[in-house]
Design a protein around this nucleic acid. Structure first.
Lengths: 168, 168
DNA sequence: GTCTATAGAAGGATAGAC
DNA sequence: GTCTATCCTTCTATAGAC
């Protein structure tokens, strides 16, 4: 399969971003973790690290959105949708020892004031999540404004939870 | 004043961490922003970048805690304390164009799984904040467990808010 | 305590054979 | 599409004069 290598680079980089963020991840690590040589990385992402990061943010963002939609649409009501989603996140955090966070939030904090292009990529992901949430909340009867505020609050909550390190 | 340089290094680094995080900040930037030569940085922080980061986390963490305590103790009740604090954070975010985030949260996400020492430093800060919140909530009549859970939620909220980039 | 110069390693990126 | 070798820059850290 020809695009197999590209996918491996994408998922490996997403995993590295979860652990070390954008600046904490080197292309050398990407080659080792993905098994792809540096030449292939630049073949699929001619724009280098920045273009790779942009693709990772978009693809990871879409995955998390799909996961939320899957859980939400299986839940009987919006309240259950939210608690199911947070319960799932809590389980993952517990099972992984609170080591790996959300690649979007980590990168978003790093690049907010320094990289216009990547900031846009993170903002697009959060906007997409908000849309998925708002759609379901308005369908359940909430007005647009309340649904939007609640979506922002929920996204802040899930991101903030991931910022908490393991204690001690 | 002999420790003046040390303070300038500390505050300059905290500002840089807010913008670019730990890995996104170089010691060269620290020297430029603080006006202190690299020799002085290593004079005050012989352990290099890691030791400097540890000091920045502790000092910034203490400042934010003090700010919360100031606002909370001026508020008539716990609910007002929380809304006053979040309102203050919102004002700062608006005034700065959502550019600079929380140095603790940013670094916490970067180092959670890669640097044991810095992870401890971030965990200590969050624990200190939680203590400040729990003290006031239990004084207001909440039981210890509920106060602890609420403190964690509030900290997650304030951190998650800072992870949101400016839109568009 | 301050400052400069520099060592030594690691980073991103490119060229070109295959 | 894959892989290696290599260039240039930047980074952390150290040495030593002042």
């Amino acid at each position: 399969m020809p695009t197999d290598t590209r996918d491996r680079i994408l998922t490996a980089t997403a995993e590295l971003f979860r652990a070390g963020g954008y600046h904490g991840t080197s292309l050398k690590q990407v080659t080792v973790a993905s098994g792809a040589p540096i030449g292939s990385v630049y073949h699929f992402f001619p724009g280098g690290k920045a273009e790779l990061a942009e693709a990772v943010l978009a693809s990871s963002g879409a995955s998390y959105r799909a996961l939320f939609e899957l859980i939400a649409d299986a839940a009987p009501d919006p309240v259950a949708a939210v608690t199911d989603f947070f319960d799932g996140a809590a389980t993952v955090l517990e099972e992984t020892g609170y080591l790996d966070a959300c690649p979007i939030g980590t990168v978003a904090l790093e690049v907010a004031s320094s990289d216009e292009r990547l900031r846009h990529a993170t903002a697009a992901v959060f906007a997409s999540w908000a849309e998925a949430i708002v759609t379901r909340l308005t369908a359940a009867g909430l007005d647009e404004a309340t649904a939007g505020d609640l979506a922002t609050t929920l996204i802040a909550g899930i991101e903030g939870v991931h910022a908490q390190p393991r204690r001690p």
